[in-house]
């Protein structure tokens, strides 16, 4: 087992870890729903917070009702629920991210931090493909790509899960903040052209919340 610099042992990436992530992500989305909608009212159609809240509440309820046995199964299940219940573009995009990541984890009962990183990376690639989008378009990819890259870099430098996810969280937050000066090239915001500049992207912001929830799930498991 890997240990962080502070000597805290890294938690296992098992079904309980992913369920902790879901519960932390759901409450973070709920807490920040008003903010997400406020960001979306500046450059979108002012429904991102309520859409995400509805989707994650439905996913949490579904996972509770139908317990999954592996981390991959939980992520796949959450992804399917998000596609069904979000009601905006975030549904198919986050749904695809989690389903692809879940499939990449397969049916093994636990995953290594490297396997989680590879799975998330393939989920992010699937989002880029579905949305025909790339980094710099002022989308969720602007926080997701920095996050998975920071995680991969940290793991490659010998860090454990806790430190790698902490790095991912920081990179995602910075990526979301860095969308402010960008010109939107995808989605409803792209119709605004130059007027999309000067606003933080709601999708990049909610993506950073989901990444932060992974870091918190690791901290809670290590405590």
């Amino acid at each position: 087992m890997n240990t962080s610099a502070a000597g805290t042992p890294d938690p296992l990436i098992d079904t309980a870890f992913v369920r902790r992530w879901l519960s932390l992500a759901t409450s973070a989305i709920e807490r920040k729903s008003g903010w997400l909608t406020e960001l979306d009212s500046a450059i979108g159609d002012a429904d991102h917070g309520t859409n995400m809240q509805r989707g994650f509440a439905a996913a949490s309820a579904a996972v509770e009702k139908e317990p999954s046995n592996t981390p991959g199964e939980v992520l796949t299940h959450v992804g399917r629920q998000l596609i069904s219940s979000v009601g905006g573009a975030a549904g198919p995009l986050y749904g695809t991210l989690l389903r692809r990541a879940g499939k990449a984890l397969g049916d093994q009962p636990t995953a290594t931090p490297e396997e989680l990183c590879v799975a998330l990376r393939s989920g992010v690639d699937a989002v880029a493909q579905l949305g025909r989008s790339e980094r710099g378009d002022k989308t969720m990819l602007d926080s997701l790509y920095p996050a998975v890259e920071a995680m991969g870099f940290a793991l490659g430098s010998g860090a454990g899960l806790l430190a790698a996810l902490a790095a991912a969280r920081t990179a995602a937050d910075e990526g979301a903040a860095a969308t402010v000066p960008l010109l939107a090239r995808k989605g409803r915001a792209s119709y605004l052209g130059e007027r999309s500049i000067g606003h933080q992207d709601p999708g990049a912001t909610s993506a950073a919340l989901l990444i932060a929830a992974f870091a918190e799930a690791a901290e809670a498991g290590a405590a």
Partner: peptide, 14 residues
């Protein structure tokens, strides 16, 4: 538009 297209594509992929 947007989510209509993406939702159909995600459902087809799944």
């Amino acid at each position: 538009l947007g989510s209509a297209v993406l939702t159909v594509k995600a459902l087809l992929e799944d």
